[in-house]
């Protein structure tokens, strides 16, 4: 348990930075209630791409980075930056505001974009750091 202390510490630090960046994004680019939440949509997509990239660096690259890099930037920063709860609440609000089409578009559009972003991040990471053996 004692060896978990630094990991929990960097997860907290990364989470604070990630959540602060998300909060800053919503202040810089506010979206009106009842409209498509583009800011959180973009934040979630960007965080997914970054996590994909980073996880390849931490788990597949030949030269392993510092062991605290993944908990700090992945679990901490990306986890704190992206949010599932706001996504769920905004979807519910769009339904409540009488915009079922936008609600479904937001619900499904975020999922598809997030999966595409994490896939692109992983692919970019492999192209950058993982050497392929000739077949």
């Amino acid at each position: 348990m004692r060896e978990q202390v630094p990991v929990v510490g960097v997860v907290a630090a990364g989470g604070v930075l990630g959540a602060s960046a998300r909060y800053a994004a919503t202040l810089l680019w506010p979206t009106a209630p009842g409209t498509f939440p583009w800011t959180v949509f973009t934040v979630n997509a960007a965080g997914c791409a970054l996590l994909g990239l980073l996880t390849v660096l931490a788990t597949e690259a030949p030269a392993a980075p510092h062991p605290l890099l993944r908990p700090f930037l992945g679990t901490g920063f990306c986890g704190g930056f992206t949010t599932f709860s706001t996504y769920a609440l905004d979807t519910r609000r769009l339904f409540g505001a009488g915009s079922p089409v936008e609600a479904v578009l937001y619900l499904g559009g975020t999922l598809v974009t997030a999966l595409a972003a994490v896939t692109a991040g992983v692919a970019a990471g492999r192209a950058l750091w993982v050497r392929r053996e000739p077949v």
Binding site: T26, G47, G79, F81, T83, F84, A114, A117
Partner: peptide, 16 residues
């Protein structure tokens, strides 16, 4: 909300 629930939940790990 923004701090605790926002950081407790994650879209990136879910997608990964």
């Amino acid at each position: 909300g923004t701090g605790l629930c926002g950081a407790l939940t994650t879209y990136s790990t879910f997608s990964y």
